[in-house]
Design a protein around this nucleic acid. Structure first.
Lengths: 136, 136
DNA sequence: CTTGACCTTCCCATAGTGGGAATCTTTATG
DNA sequence: CATAAAGATTCCCACTATGGGAAGGTCAAG
C-alpha cells in the first residue's frame, strides 16, 4: 500500500464516484476538504480513495448521504458496537421493503389493467377508463 | 353532474392533489391555466376536477408528469388507439420492474450482511468490513 | 370593522446527479 | 519554446416531485 497522490480524476476512476460527486460530497461535508496543490488542484491519497470506495459501496446498497455519514463515523470509531451498524442496516432494509412493496402494488394494478386492454386500433381502453374513474 | 365552481382548496380536497401541486401542474403546463375570479382566485369546474382526479390516479400508479401529459392527450383524443395506451403502460411496468429488481438486489445483499453480523457490543462488523472491501 | 381562513406570488429546500461556461494548469507534441 | 489538448477550478442551472413559509390581498362570519 504505497501512498501515491491522485488528482480528482484519478480518484474518481479509482473509486467509481464521478469527480462531480466527489466535489459535491466535500461541499456537503460527507468527506473532509481535500488538500490542494499549489495550483489549487485537489489531491487524494490511498486512504482518501479507500473512503470514497466505502462511500460507493454504501451508495450501491441504497444508503442516503446522511446514512453514509453515520456509517463513516461508525467505521472510524474503534469503540463502536456492531449492533449500531446492524440496526442501521436493518432500518434501511425496512425502507427498501416499503419502497419495493409500493412499486410492486403499482405494478400489480397496472398489469391487471394492461391485461384488460385489448390494445388494438379501437379507442376504448380500460386503462384510461380506470384512470378517469371517480374512485376514491 | 352539476357544474359548481370550486376554488383551489376545494379542488384540492375533491381531487386529492394539494393546492401547491395544482398550481405547480399549471406552471409546468400539465393542465391549462385555470380561469380566475375578479379577485384573481383560480376557479375549477367539475370537468377540471375530473382531470385532476385522473392525474392523481395516474400519479398513484407511478407515472411521471411527462407520461401523465401523454395519457391526458390520449384521454382527450377520440381517435386514439388503445394500443398506444397499452404500450405506455407496459413500458411503465418495465420501469417499475427495473426499480423493483434494483431495490430487491440491495435488500438481498444487505440482508446477507445483516445475517453475518452478530450485532452485539463488540466493534468488529462484517457489514462495515464489506463496505470497506476493495472489491470492484 | 375585525378576525380568521383562504387565496395570491415568490423564494427556498429536499436528494442525487449531471451539463456546461469561463478560466487556469499541466502535459505532450512539433 | 510555443501551442494545443486534456483536465482542474468555480459557479450557475437542470432534473422530479413535493412542501414550507413569508408578505400581502380577499372573503365571510360575527
Amino acid at each position: 500500500m504505497q501512498s501515491d497522490l491522485y488528482n480528482i480524476g484519478e480518484a474518481a476512476n479509482a473509486s467509481g464516484i464521478s469527480a462531480k460527486m466527489i466535489r459535491h460530497y466535500e461541499d456537503v461535508g460527507l468527506i473532509p476538504k481535500a488538500s490542494r496543490t499549489l495550483a489549487g488542484y485537489r489531491t487524494y491519497n490511498d486512504k482518501n480513495v479507500h473512503t470514497l470506495r466505502f462511500i460507493r459501496h454504501a451508495r450501491d446498497l441504497g444508503f442516503s448521504v446522511k446514512q453514509i455519514g453515520n456509517l463513516l463515523s461508525l467505521w472510524s470509531d474503534q469503540a463502536r458496537s456492531s449492533s449500531q451498524v446492524k440496526s442501521m442496516a436493518m432500518e434501511h432494509i425496512e425502507m427498501l421493503n416499503l419502497k419495493i412493496h409500493e412499486l410492486h402494488a403499482m405494478k400489480l394494478e397496472l398489469t391487471r389493467l394492461v391485461n384488460c386492454c385489448h390494445g388494438d386500433t379501437r379507442p376504448d381502453c380500460p386503462i384510461l377508463d380506470n384512470l378517469a374513474q371517480n374512485k376514491v
